[in-house]
């Protein structure tokens, strides 16, 4: 996958590495504070601005948790230097969430084998992703484990989970639980009217909406079919 090391500055090579990959230029970091690392990246790009102009960057931040402001700053600073931030890779759910909200890709078409898959993936999948806001059109949340949303999933938003999806709000967008084929998962919401709903391989669309039908519902697979039932305390 990695064909050539394009650029190494001896003084800063331990902080920032930039390598050519099929999708563009992969940026990886050494151990230091994020401010130091990002500054070091900007200065490296600035030194060879003509060379980097128009490049697509895939930035791998490892397990650092970056807020959307930090990811946004990274994108804007790089844009000022003529570089497009295309993808942010991270094992931190916070960073992945921030990047997704800004409309950046968070995985490569064919994943680079960066971590021994078992541990990192299993670790992410075992944690539920907690989102305490409404997902608006264009937001895409993808998570290996369960997803809990305190807010609405508006029309045009997408939630894709390896596990179950629980929404304390209205669902109008696209929801897909059990993306890896797990059929023992559920989707539940206070008002469930998705554009399209999937569990595993099964697909359903909502019946036409009538007035005053807002009621908590849960969808599960029963006997190989998607079945919606009232969502009540057990």
């Amino acid at each position: 996958m990695i064909d050539a090391i394009i650029f190494i500055d001896m003084a800063e090579s331990s902080l920032v590495q930039i390598k050519g990959i099929k999708e563009g230029l992969l940026v990886t970091f050494g151990e230091a504070d994020w401010n130091v690392l990002s500054q070091s990246l900007y200065s490296q790009v600035e030194k060879q601005q003509a060379f980097f102009k128009g490049a697509r960057f895939v930035v791998d931040v490892g397990d650092r948790s970056l807020k959307s402001r930090e990811v946004g700053t990274l994108r804007d600073k790089l844009a000022d230097l003529g570089v497009n931030l295309d993808t942010v890779l991270s094992t931190s759910a916070v960073t992945v969430n921030s990047a997704q909200l800004l409309g950046l890709a968070t995985q490569l078409p064919v994943p680079v084998k960066r971590y021994p898959k078992s541990e990192a993936a299993a670790d992410l999948a075992s944690h539920a992703l907690w989102i305490d806001k409404t997902l608006r059109s264009g937001a895409r949340i993808e998570h290996a484990g369960n997803v809990v949303i305190l807010g609405d999933v508006n029309s045009g938003a997408e939630v894709i989970a390896g596990g179950s999806i629980m929404v304390w709000g209205r669902v109008r967008g696209f929801v897909h639980a059990g993306k890896e084929g797990d059929n023992a998962v559920a989707i539940c919401a206070l008002d469930l009217h998705p554009t399209q709903l999937r569990i595993g391989e099964l697909i359903a669309v909502s019946p036409p909406k009538t007035k005053d039908t807002a009621k908590p519902e849960m969808v599960k697979i029963v006997d190989g079919q998607l079945v919606a039932e009232p969502w009540k305390p057990i």
């Binding site: 959307s68 946004g72 909200l101 800004l102 997902l135 608006r136 059109s137 937001a139």
Partner: peptide, 15 residues
Amino acid sequence: VRDADRVVGLIEAEE
């Protein structure tokens, strides 16, 4: 309205 919703989301993401 759908496009407005998208824009609201982007503005929220920009904090």
